[in-house]
Design a protein around this nucleic acid. Sequence first.
DNA 1: CGGTTCGTTGAGGCCCATCAATCTATGTGG
DNA 2: CCACATAGATTGATGGGCCTCAACGAACCG
Lengths: 259, 259
Amino acid sequence: MIEVSQIETSIVLRGPSSSRLAGTRLLKSHLLLNEERRALDNAVSPPRSVGAGTDLVQEGQRTDNVFIVVDGWACRYMTTSAGGRQFPGLVLPGDIGNLDSLMFDRLDYGVRTLSDATVVALPRDRALALAALHPGIAGTFTWLALIENVMLSRSALSLGRRDARQRLAHLFSEVSARLAVQDGNQSGFEFPLTQEQIADAVGLTGVHVNRTMQQLRAEGVIVTRGRTMLIPDVARLRRIAGFDPRYLHMDAAADGGLS
Amino acid sequence: MIEVSQIETSIVLRGPSSSRLAGTRLLKSHLLLNEERRALDNAVSPPRSVGAGTDLVQEGQRTDNVFIVVDGWACRYMTTSAGGRQFPGLVLPGDIGNLDSLMFDRLDYGVRTLSDATVVALPRDRALALAALHPGIAGTFTWLALIENVMLSRSALSLGRRDARQRLAHLFSEVSARLAVQDGNQSGFEFPLTQEQIADAVGLTGVHVNRTMQQLRAEGVIVTRGRTMLIPDVARLRRIAGFDPRYLHMDAAADGGLS
DNA sequence: CGGTTCGTTGAGGCCCATCAATCTATGTGG
DNA sequence: CCACATAGATTGATGGGCCTCAACGAACCG
């Protein structure tokens, strides 16, 4: 929060509108020049507040906007014809909901808020125009897409080859790792997902998620109080999950980047 | 094949070396100018022939090259600490094996050939330099990354919410759809995967893949002869799989793109 | 205080994993 | 040309992890 207001004031000096993308993963890209950051910020719509459970984009719908969830949680969701639902990804505060809309006019998943959220829209044509003009912006888009790739690949390993206990441990590991970058390194964090929604994220049933989380609680691996989760021993959780934070590429400086 | 030789000759006129990327998905990008196509072709290493089962990049290894599988099949593979193996993606002829290496110096998966293959390497620094210089190349990289995103997301739905029969149908649907673009629309195609490898792709056991494929054969959904597969009724297969080819974004012209 | 959402618990069953053996095709050396 | 080895496909028996169905409890809310 402190960091956010700092960024806001520093940008207010430059343009007529305060920063709408402050704290966003897009703006945090190390590939961006400050000038490009400002250009992105100006290209984006005014923030909109939406309630939990509203569709930013419906499954299979077409859209011309890339939605950035400045605050709050959302999910990408898909459904089978039989009614099964799966979240291919969670959208955490500051994340982009539908980067695919940068290139494709139709989305094969939907984006829905899981909590009250404030959202900002980046029109595709403006995004593409900026990318064509600014190499840093273009590089940031691939960078963001590749990070999602990494998370989706790891998720495939979980869904395909891990049991319920490990899948849940992996989900909690990933979420805590992704949040840690934005919130500083706390061991407790907001986790607004319903058990049913957790089930949709890890490919299980709500009932089984319940039983498995009870087991994890009994072991002391996780502590839940209301909608907040606390992980007493992150290393242990990660050991259970087989989770290696090194491949999340959150600290971009450690990677090759533009070199 | 006809198309390939056309591209070759048209490029031979321009540069000293014949096209190394002909027929490759990278070169087929609709975002590319011919000048950019030539630049990419010149940035790439000479083709190398490798046998089946060789690692282009080992799991968790660092590399400075993006490998393009000009011919033959490969897979991205990951393993759990318990020894479970999962393919987050198949690399078909003309596909890029490790696009992630464009931005990250360390890969969290490995890339291994599934058949004899000829491979070409694109050094990261050269790729990034080209991307910074040519908007079409930069856009192509995001486009490729986003396509992989789509496939990974659909795979997540399969792994999380579909049974063995549907998963196999989905795999065969996707492979046939991806191949159709390159080979013309045939109903039969080379499918060099072992049943064990199919199992690694869909998150099942080799034994169960065997039984389920027998069922699909008995129903006449698929016909296998040696390493070639034939799908008598593609529509039926796709119905079983819940597969919608519209979201594969193979015919790029139909999409928004650069507009 | 009735309704709704979400968490929890129990019973029963199925899909798929596991283990292990057999069969077939292919290749190799003597 | 045959004995042998190996990789991959096939089959059977058994068990377990997770699903399904169903009910109940708890928290929240107008």
